[in-house]
Design a protein around this nucleic acid. Structure first.
Lengths: 132, 132
DNA sequence: GACAACGGTATCCATTGGATACTGATAGCT
DNA sequence: AGCTATCAGTATCCAATGGATACCGTTGTC
């Protein structure tokens, strides 16, 4: 059974949309894309702007983004080397959905922090009530 | 320096919005939330609908979602046990941003798969050109 | 008294992520 | 000639995370 003509369905583990969905949710990938939203950035700049990622992991992230056609990598033949990363049109089309998520996250920070505090307090009390 | 009164900024590793943003991007959390969009679901059903997650990992995911106030956990005192999970209002407010992402992922499946094939082909050729 | 249903834990191992050190090419300085 | 700095990464190693599998507690049914 070939999946390529079936309707995309994130809940199907065999559906590529699921893999793509998870790539978007990747810890660094989504941050990189948002940073690149303002134009091309070189490797070392990217490292500074996306605090704080090790070079190995940043490279991995950039390679998969490039493979998926979301960014392009441009090497300038100079020394010291210069490599620019920038969004493709498809990469740019991700900016809007991502910024909606970012806005959601930023606007719900206080509520979530309160929920965590309340939850942790309840855990502490439960622990006191039944100290094994 | 206290961060709690600063404007939320995803690029600041000390900002809670960053943590929250990454929780949304969690491999299973976002799928669970989307499944719960249609109403309460019990543990075993959730496991079937979110293919395929081990019980340990699903439990971890549900606990953190509960802690963050995105879902509630309801235990019915019966045997065999029954536990329902459902979205809080805040959890529901995540459905829209998430569905935008899902739509993006589903609609870009073909383009991304093509990009991957092209990239992999280019890699293969580069390998043939310089067989170390 | 064995079994099934359900919502988990417990344990172990594979994969991933991260910290740190290092490389290669060249220009500029001494 | 040798030393140093710059940049974009690798290489190596160790810790944290994710996943597979087995098991547990409770009670109703056969």
């Amino acid at each position: 059974m070939d999946t390529k003509d079936l309707p995309a369905n994130i809940l199907d583990p065999n559906c590529p949309s699921r893999v793509i969905f998870q790539r978007i949710g990747d810890k660094w990938a989504s941050l990189v894309i948002q940073v690149l939203g303002d134009g091309p950035v070189r490797f070392s700049e990217l490292r500074k702007m996306v605090n704080v990622v090790t070079p190995k992991v940043l490279t991995q992230t950039l390679r998969t983004l490039e493979r998926d056609g979301l960014i392009t990598r441009t090497v300038y033949a100079q020394v010291p080397p210069r490599v620019d990363y920038q969004l493709t049109p498809m990469g740019e089309s991700l900016l809007q959905p991502l910024s909606m998520l970012r806005e959601w996250a930023e606007s719900h920070v206080p509520t979530i922090m309160e929920a965590r505090d309340a939850y942790d307090d309840a855990q502490d009390e439960a622990l006191l009530a039944s100290p094994k």
